[in-house]
Design a binder for these strands. Sequence first.
RNA 1: GGGCAGUUAGCGCAGUUGGUUAGCGCACCACGUUGACAUCGUGGGGGUCAGAGGUUCGAGUCCUCUACUGCCCACCA
Length: 911
Amino acid sequence: MIELAKTYDPHQVEDAIYKVWEEKGYFHAEPNPLKKPYSIVIPPPNITGILHMGHALNNTIQDILIRFKRMQGFETEWMPGTDHAGIATQNVVERKLAKDGIKRQEIGRDKFVEEVWKWREEYGSTIIRQLKKLGCSCDWQRIRFTMDEGLSDAVLEVFVRLYKKGLIYRGNYIINWCPRCQTALSDEESQHKDVDGMLYYIKYPIKAGERKKAKGSAGKTTEEDHVVIATTRPETMLGDVAVAVNPKDKRYKGLKGKSLILPILNRELRVIFDSLVDMKFGTGALKVTPAHDPVDFELGLKYGLEQINVMNDDATINARGEDYEGMDRFEAREAILEDLKERGLFIKAEPHRHAVGHCYRCHTMVEPRLCPQWFVKMKPLAKPAIDVVRKGRIKFYPARWTKVYLDWMENIRDWCISRQIWWGHRIPVYYCKKCYKNSGALDGRGPAINGKEGIIVSKTRPQTCPTCGSAEIEQDPDVLDTWFSSWLWPFSTFGWPKETPELKYFYPTDSLVTAQEIIFFWVARMIMAGLEFRGDIPFKSVYIHGTVRDITGTKMSKSLGNIIDPLEMISKYGTDALRFSIISITAQGQDVFLSESKFELGRNFANKIWNASRFILANLKPEDVGVDLCAFFKKTELTLPERWILSRFYSTLAYVGRCLDEFKFNEAANSIYEFVWHEFCDWYIEIAKSTISEKTSQIILYKVLEKTLHMLHPFMPFITEEIWQKLPRSVDAAGESIMVQPWPHVQKEMISREAERQMTLLTHIVTAVRNMRAFWSIEPKVRIEAMVNVQEGPDEKILRDNSGFIKQMARLADFKVGRYAKPRNAAVAVVGSAEIYMPLEGLIDFQKERARLEKEVLRLENEMKGLTSRLADKSFLSKAPEDVVRKQRERKDELQMQLEKVRENLKEICV
RNA sequence: GGGCAGUUAGCGCAGUUGGUUAGCGCACCACGUUGACAUCGUGGGGGUCAGAGGUUCGAGUCCUCUACUGCCCACCA
């Protein structure tokens, strides 16, 4: 007899179990020619992050996969790590320093970066500890950080290779600028959000000497001395150099050859005619600001317009804005509008809702701005990455993401990779001052755009300029986008560019598990990088899980305060409960709406397992159970419930395996739940109570429990380990862990549809008796008897053989099987071809019983109607598959019989 | 503007390739026994599967349209 504690306390065991796992090295994998590899890489959380529910879901899924595959005998490598999150981390450390009144500019670059490293030492592994708390079986010996020496080397290597290949260039284009972080952002880092703004209508006067002609040729409808433009951002007019209209727009025909005067600054503006201009928007006249708008920029290039940048890095107006210099962009907007009103040039403002880019880190409104930056040419990289997905070498689950991926890839734009911050991989570009000064510097930030003079791209710092020999060399001050290191993750973590044994063995990895937000940032880029630098796909399948939202459907975020903290849930309900709950409520790829009460599901389930185990172990005779299951069954006659529970177990096991292969984690979890609770506990254990000391029951209870623990382990690693450790087992398995036990083999010969069908008959009979008892309010302690009237045949034999179980489960004094006539004063129920009588001397209220039976008749008749018409339908009979027709016929016969019997009983009552 | 999801019991959701009587959890009602479990057991009530049309012998499931909700993408200033 083995005793388990009365209640399961996750907190007492989880940390200790995890420690043992880690110490014994179960998480670690090495290239092993005897085994097949299975590897996944963690989507590296950033070092400023703390574990949120999205992480919990994401990592639970990965851990389930890894534990499943590990038990299946694969050499499983789950590569963990963190990314340095350039902008986010720099912001955090800046804020920390600001508390002590320190600005990063004051202490300088080197000192600041030192501070960030210090911060990272102290706080950067919070999320790692939390992942351990979640039970993640990552290979911590291989943990990587995007700023590690090896990964940094990979980053430089990639930059140099791409540059040499002509896929990296320096260009002066409109980029997304975050005035708060004071850096450029990629298109993906600028998130569009709808903003309620205003559309302002402003008069731009026609140059004085040219007005009359304009009037003459434009007809009555044209304003005689000005053009009205519409803009949402009046402050950018300080950088206007032209006004554009559509050549087809009749309203502006008369503007040909004319100039306009920019209000306030009195700059002379060209009028250009271009079909890019939408005639339907605003007034059809577009003010052109090449340095502050992508469309205007295009026009500027096309017509050779001057690019006037009117803002500083912090989005205040610069000297080009004359009187507005020093004002913030929004202040300037108001001031300019005021001035325009004074001059009578302001017409109206109407509400206008439009999408505006926001910084994905600090949510500040992004300023489109002309600025020299480094870019990666993406089209050549995208092409092969499109092919591998088209050809199905990489598959998305659910498949709909394939289209999202392909759409984006086919319209991919160049990637702005330089960031004007200090924390990150510094761009391996060096400028020879002597050479580039000759070619004309720009913005003091480097040499001429698109030229190569004075640019040295090298992994290491050159001593002298290879062209002129000058030692006056300085490195580009910018760092690279964090994703420029993350996109190499699947191979840089295995040692690339070195051809390490790990890289050869584990690459390509198998599955990538991630959230939809990150498809463009990360997934797509990893595919491109994998193909470009390693010549092979980085992973075979991509599983995109849903977003975790709160109960109202909003995404959980710290700023909204609607967070359900996974660590808090772990401390309240236990890790296994958290894991099981979140998995079982998350359908494939579907967003999940979370509320705290959902974690009760997992907690209750853990409790159920604990108690079932406690019962089994308390009654266990260890000397009886150490047998080979297959051998034992071959020579032992099993009862129906025994054959049934084994059949159900193996069916469930097979189904769970299939679900995990198809990323249907919720279905796997729910089928285990259903099996454990409603089949094993509710029926089999209850039935086995009467024979618990017999060897067969001992073996079945023990084996089903043990194998169920195996099957459940990937989902609930701690409780299964804790119970498994308590099981008696042979010496060779002693001290081992359930996590390295083999995944149970599906014994197909144990799966019996027939046993399952027969058992259903028994459970239906028991349920019918219980139902009658409840209906007639017969207290459980009152032992009464019942009998079943059944025709001679297979069903009779089943009932006869198992009458003991029925008696036991329905709490009957006696249960007789045979041919019986209905006794007087008996309640009756019909199940299939059998009729159950329950004599209730003196208890029967005929009216009540009649009502009950009438209701039953109604139900049966209703179903009968449908069946009858279907079976009378010639088309159905000719077109439906045979087995469907046969089944329906059988069902009809059965119904017919039931109906007759119930009607007969009804008649008798009426007498 | 384009795309993708979702709409099934009071609430939150499942529902494989179309095929018997549409399920689960929570909540609800009634009753609770001998030692696994009140984080429980037994029984019960509750749904014209968003709406309309179509395909089919047969539709929650496939097609079209509509409505509402949510998400993603997008250079109409």
